[in-house]
């Protein structure tokens, strides 16, 4: 009797386990033979923030979170995608719905503007939409000077319009409670817009005033890129001096070390070695350096040289 009482559930458990194992094995087999089903393209069925807000009843903040997670995942997927035709079409609608559902979602405005403004293919390459999003945030919270600082930053870094950038920094400085350095940032931008020192000051102010770890890390990353650009300039000068002395570009960093022009192989702020093209003498980051791609042109300051890629 006791054996029967134990054996039956045991047999039942075994049967269930066998069935589970069987359907998992069948799925694995089918995927191996016919290939795994491709995930569907991202679709946004409802594009109106107001419509989604009404449909979400009392769960609006949670639905805003879901749209925010979708926006972050969508941006991440697109950024990592290797497709030559990748598009960021849904990024702005997702951010717009998120912020319509939760107008106080500060991070959605501030991160979202970074995702939108970042040049293609790393981002959507839409600084115009980044400004629209930040202006929406400012309309919802007219005391948040950070949105105006961010608009100025978009004009400075992504559009290269320093007068407009300075105007927005000034506008931000007018808001009660805004820090004093926003006014001086506006003055520096007017005077030195496009200069790498101006860029450095902008990023330092963003890093030091960031109220969020992600924004702080992003600013620190940009400062490391500017440091790398400074080092690339100095290394280019050394390579040019070597060519002027010997008539040819150095074959490697070791050549410069042996010539006494360098103490060791130069490393970028992340520890990756800089690369030297012995044919052209151009200096740049290693292909696998986390600092890639370096800013070019206006973002890097007028002194910048486009690094070898």
């Amino acid at each position: 009797m006791t054996t029967h009482r134990v054996a039956r559930p045991l047999a039942f458990g075994l049967a269930l386990t066998t069935l589970v194992g069987s359907f998992v094995a069948l799925e694995l087999w089918r995927d191996r033979v016919y290939g795994e089903p491709a995930p569907g393209d991202a679709v946004l069925y409802v594009r109106s923030g107001d419509a989604v807000r009404r449909l979400s009843l009392s769960f609006t903040p949670l639905v805003a979170d879901l749209y925010w997670i979708r926006a972050v995942q969508y941006y991440g997927d697109m950024r990592l995608s290797r497709s030559p035709n990748k598009r960021y079409d849904l990024l702005y609608p997702l951010l717009d719905i998120t912020t319509s559902l939760d107008p106080d979602f500060t991070v959605a405005y501030r991160f979202g503007s970074i995702f939108l403004a970042e040049s293609y293919p790393g981002g959507a390459g839409r600084p115009d939409l980044a400004v629209v999003l930040l202006q929406k945030g400012f309309r919802a919270a007219p005391t948040r000077w950070r949105y105006l600082q961010d608009i100025g930053f978009v004009y400075y870094w992504w559009v290269g319009d320093y007068q407009e950038a300075a105007r927005w920094f000034d506008k931000g400085a007018d808001i009660p409670g805004a820090p004093w350095w926003l006014r001086s940032l506006a003055a520096v931008t007017k005077a030195q817009g496009g200069d790498r020192r101006g860029s450095r000051q902008l990023w330092q102010s963003l890093r030091d005033s960031a109220d969020n770890e992600w924004l702080r890390n992003n600013a620190a990353f940009r400062l490391e890129q500017l440091d790398a650009l400074d080092v690339i300039d100095r290394l280019t000068t050394i390579v040019s001096a070597f060519k002027a002395r010997t008539g040819e570009y150095p074959a490697s960093w070791d050549t410069l070390v042996r010539a006494g022009l360098l103490r060791a192989q130069p490393l970028d702020p992340t520890g990756s070695p800089y690369v030297l093209d012995p044919a052209t003498g151009r200096v740049g980051l290693a292909a696998d350096s986390p600092l890639n791609p370096l800013p070019v042109g206006a973002q890097a300051g007028q002194m910048a040289l486009q690094p070898a890629r």
């Binding site: 009392s58 903040p61 979170d65 997670i69 972050v72 991070v107 969020n212």
Partner: peptide
């Protein structure tokens, strides 16, 4: 959520907790 929300985990846990309670 910590891995999916760009640092908004505390906000989302609060939203989720209150929404689930409701």
């Amino acid at each position: 959520v910590g891995q999916m929300t760009a640092g908004q985990d505390i906000k989302i846990i609060k939203d989720l907790g209150l929404a689930a309670t409701s």
